[in-house]
Simulated scan of single mutants.
Amino acid sequence: MLEPLPAFVGADGTDFEPVVLGELAENVVEDYMRTYGRPDQVAAWREGRPYVSELAETSAGR
């Protein structure tokens, strides 16, 4: 749980709501995957399984 330390909260309170770090990170990953992920990559992430893409024909590893 992330929230402002009491020493930094004024008499009027704070503008920041407490957040759970894990949820914040999950939301960032979800947004990234929605924007840049391949469909099979997104499916693997949502199912909690690893994803390794195939090497492209032009890959240096071929």
Rank of each mutant, 00 (worst) to 15 (best):
M1W: 09
M1Y: 07
L2E: 11
L2K: 05
L2P: 01
P4T: 09
P4W: 01
P4S: 02
L5N: 06
P6T: 15
P6I: 03
P6N: 03
P6Y: 00
P6F: 06
A7P: 06
F8D: 12
F8G: 00
F8E: 09
F8Y: 06
V9S: 11
V9P: 14
G10S: 15
G10Q: 09
G10H: 09
G10R: 09
A11N: 07
A11G: 11
A11D: 10
A11F: 06
D12L: 03
D12W: 03
D12C: 05
D12I: 00
D12G: 14
G13I: 04
G13S: 04
G13F: 09
T14G: 01
T14E: 11
D15K: 10
F16S: 08
E17W: 04
E17S: 11
E17F: 00
P18S: 08
V19E: 12
V20C: 12
V20F: 05
L21R: 08
L21P: 01
L21S: 05
L21Q: 14
L21Y: 02
G22V: 10
G22E: 09
G22N: 13
E23N: 05
L24W: 10
L24K: 13
L24M: 14
L24G: 03
L24Y: 06
E26C: 04
V28A: 12
V28C: 04
V29T: 01
V29W: 12
E30D: 12
E30C: 01
E30F: 00
E30K: 15
D31Y: 00
D31V: 14
D31R: 11
Y32G: 11
Y32K: 06
Y32Q: 12
Y32D: 08
Y32L: 12
R34V: 01
R34E: 14
T35Y: 10
T35G: 04
T35S: 05
G37M: 01
G37N: 10
G37P: 08
P39S: 03
P39L: 01
P39M: 04
D40E: 15
Q41D: 15
Q41T: 04
Q41Y: 15
A44H: 01
A44F: 03
A44G: 03
R46D: 11
R46W: 00
R46E: 13
R46N: 07
R46L: 09
E47T: 10
G48A: 04
G48L: 13
G48S: 06
R49C: 00
R49W: 08
R49H: 13
R49G: 00
P50W: 02
P50D: 02
P50Y: 01
Y51E: 07
Y51G: 04
V52A: 02
S53N: 09
E54W: 07
E54L: 15
E54Q: 13
E54P: 03
L55C: 08
L55S: 03
L55F: 07
A56L: 15
A56W: 02
E57C: 01
T58N: 06
T58Q: 13
S59N: 07
S59C: 10
A60G: 13
G61K: 07
G61N: 10
G61Y: 07
G61H: 06
R62Y: 05
R62L: 08
R62G: 05
